[in-house]
Amino acid sequence: MEQLTQWVMAGGVIVSPACIAPSEHVAKLFGITAASYTKSRYFASWEDGMMMEKELEYMDEPEEKDFSLGNERLGMAIKTYGYTLSTARVLARFNTGEPAVTVNEMDKGRVYSFGLLWRDVIQRSQLNKDFSAQRSYSNDFEPSADTFPLFVRSVYAK
C-alpha cells in the first residue's frame, strides 16, 4: 500500500468504484474513513460549480448534472455507499446529502472514489435491470449510464 501511495503522490491517478470497507491504509489513500451501505439513494448530483471542472468537461447536457440510481416511487435502487470523509473533497452527493463521488488530492496525484459499483450503473441499464432508473418512459434522453465513462475519459485525458 505504501508503494501505491507513493505512486499517487508522484502524479498517479486512481479511479475506484465502491470503497466498501476502508482499512487504515485505504482510508489514508482515499481520504475516506467509513462507508455506509443502503438501497435508498435514488439519485446523485454533481456539486454546484463542478460542471466547470476538467473531470466533467464531456458532460455538456443539463440532464448530466444528475444521475439516476433507481426509482423512488417504486422504492427500488441499486446498492450505494455513502462516505465519511477525512481529507477527500466531495464532487457529487446522493439525494440524502452524503458524498457519492470524492477526490483525494495527494501532492501531484489524485484518488477518485465512487460510492457505487460500475456494473450497477452501466451494465444494469444496458441489460434493462436498472430498477426503472430512467426518468422518462420513452423517447427521452437518459444520460445516467453515460456519465461514468465520460468521467473516466476526461480523467484519462487530463
Rank of each mutant, 00 (worst) to 15 (best):
M1H: 14
E2M: 13
E2K: 13
Q3K: 14
L4A: 06
L4M: 10
T5W: 09
Q6N: 12
W7G: 04
V8I: 09
G11W: 03
I14Q: 02
V15P: 01
S16G: 05
P17K: 04
I20F: 14
I20D: 14
A21Y: 13
S23R: 12
S23Y: 11
E24K: 10
H25G: 12
V26Y: 15
A27I: 13
A27Q: 12
A27P: 12
F30V: 04
F30Q: 01
F30P: 00
G31N: 10
G31P: 08
A35Y: 02
A35Q: 01
A35R: 05
Y37T: 08
T38A: 09
T38V: 08
S40A: 13
Y42L: 11
Y42E: 15
F43M: 13
S45H: 14
W46D: 00
E47P: 01
D48C: 04
D48Y: 06
M50N: 08
M50Q: 11
K54D: 15
K54G: 10
K54F: 08
L56A: 11
M59P: 00
E61A: 11
E61Y: 07
E61V: 12
F67G: 01
L69A: 02
L69C: 05
G70N: 04
G70Y: 03
N71P: 05
N71I: 01
R73C: 08
L74C: 06
M76P: 04
A77V: 01
I78M: 02
K79V: 06
G82V: 15
G82D: 09
Y83A: 08
L85K: 14
S86W: 13
S86R: 07
A88G: 02
R89W: 13
V90K: 07
L91S: 09
A92D: 00
F94P: 00
E98C: 03
A100V: 09
A100Q: 05
A100G: 09
V101S: 06
V101Q: 08
T102W: 00
V103R: 05
M106P: 02
M106Q: 08
G109A: 05
G109S: 09
G109V: 06
R110F: 03
R110V: 00
R110M: 02
V111E: 15
F114Y: 11
L117G: 07
W118D: 00
W118S: 06
D120W: 09
I122P: 03
I122M: 12
Q123W: 06
Q123I: 12
Q126L: 15
K129Q: 10
D130T: 01
D130F: 00
F131G: 03
Q134P: 06
S136Y: 13
S136P: 14
S136W: 15
S136K: 13
S136N: 11
Y137T: 14
S138Q: 14
N139P: 13
E142F: 11
E142M: 13
P143D: 00
A145G: 03
A145T: 09
D146K: 12
F148K: 07
P149A: 11
L150D: 13
F151W: 06
V152Q: 07
R153N: 15
V155C: 08
